[in-house]
């Protein structure tokens, strides 16, 4: 990968932005969210970043970039939101921020390298990621909350598991 691509990847995320837990669907979110950053500031892990790319619609909105810091599902941000952009949820299992996808072409166990980083650290432990044949990680999409912890810990140079926004 050229330095230029790397640079681009750094300044801009390549996906639909992942919103904090409890976020309503993207279209409504952009209308509801008043860009106040209260969710950003309340997050104890600085998981929530702000879209800072010019004057577009998404400018100023909260976003989670799992490879930097994932959401640890402490559930402090939804009640902090003054609008209904983040719906108050209490149970972390109910979060549906996104869904993790595994790229079997690079995921280490599929290459014969033992790795369980995502499986071990998934907060929906042993449910959202299961091990096929006790070796190959597989995401159970119904259970995955999209917190991005798996993407964060994946020890491959480029993550072999990425969280993609759920289309709803």
């Amino acid at each position: 990968m050229s330095w230029f691509e790397k640079f681009l990847n750094k300044v801009a995320d390549y996906r639909q932005p992942l919103r904090p837990p409890g976020a309503i669907n993207e279209k409504d979110f952009l209308q509801h969210c008043i860009r106040c950053r209260r969710c950003v500031e309340i997050c104890p892990y600085q998981s929530i970043k702000v879209v800072k790319s010019g004057l577009g619609k998404k400018s100023g909105t909260p976003v989670i970039i799992p490879r930097q810091v994932p959401c640890y599902l402490c559930m402090k941000c939804p009640p902090e939101c003054p609008t209904d952009a983040l719906q108050p949820i209490v149970q972390k299992e109910q979060v549906r921020m996104g869904v993790a996808k595994i790229n079997q072409d690079t995921c280490l166990p599929y290459m014969g390298i033992i790795c369980r980083a995502c499986y071990e650290r998934c907060p929906i432990y042993t449910e959202a990621i299961i091990l096929k044949d006790e070796i190959y990680p597989v995401v159970v999409e119904e259970k995955c909350v999209g917190c991005g912890i798996c993407e964060n810990v994946c020890p491959n140079e480029e993550p072999s598991i990425v969280v993609i926004k759920r289309e709803s």
């Binding site: 390549y14 932005p17 998404k58 690079t106 480029e158």
Partner: peptide, 23 residues
């Protein structure tokens, strides 16, 4: 999947992680 998502995203480019560079 990633490309579809990326196309919908108005921010950033459509660079994909992994999938490109064999180990």
């Amino acid at each position: 999947t990633t490309a579809a998502a990326a196309a919908a995203a108005s921010i950033g480019t459509t660079l994909l992680p992994g999938g490109v560079k064999p180990l």
